[in-house]
Amino acid sequence: MLRVDSLEVRYGRLTALHGISFEVGSGECVGLIGANGAGKTTTLSAIAGVLTPAAGTIELEGAIVNREAPEAIVRRGVALVPEGRRIFTTLSVEENLRIGASIRGDDEIAADVERMMERFPVLRRYAGTHAGKLSGGEQQQLAIARALMSRPRLLLLDEPSLGLAPLMVDLVFDLVAQLREEGITILLVEQNGRRTVELADRTYVLASGSIVLTATGPEDLGEVERAYFGGDAAVEA
């Protein structure tokens, strides 16, 4: 589905990613974890077309998409749930859902909106209100629902549990597990290393712009902790 090869991204003279390589197979759930500033969001931004790689390739289903614009990437079946959610606060909740289907022209959009409201009852309750009025957890649900509205085959999630109450964090991780069951390929970026490793088929640990470790299951957690930053509590967070 997605193959990233020797990806290098720079901000001016600063190199944020030093040639990272990884793969996400169809139907897989892959984790990407690391401390703040490790380059996680940069990786997702490059895949989503917001940043242009300085070197290396990003391949989606066999096509090299390095220089494609975000709106073209979405049309390839990739949806991003960005860091900080970035829902459209001046639009209503329902409009946020409909705008998620911007690339679609079929007549099932209304039905999908209905399905999303079924899945996330809170969205139905606030359907007509400005999305800016929602709480953090509700906004996160909306952001995920908005991304699903494009019927993506690959879902990129950027720290979906950040800043949420513990109960909400459970809900988000359960949801990711469900989505995988439904056959959506997932690339999950998280700071919450333990839960990600437990959930994902494979988890890459990113530090200072390079992949330093690949974990395949909970048995690797000890090693992940050491790789992270010397067994810091952040993995537990």
Partner: peptide, 11 residues
């Protein structure tokens, strides 16, 4: 409101 995000949903 957010031009880049609008592009990210395919606009």
């Amino acid at each position: 409101e957010d031009f880049t995000m609008a592009r990210l949903v395919g606009i």
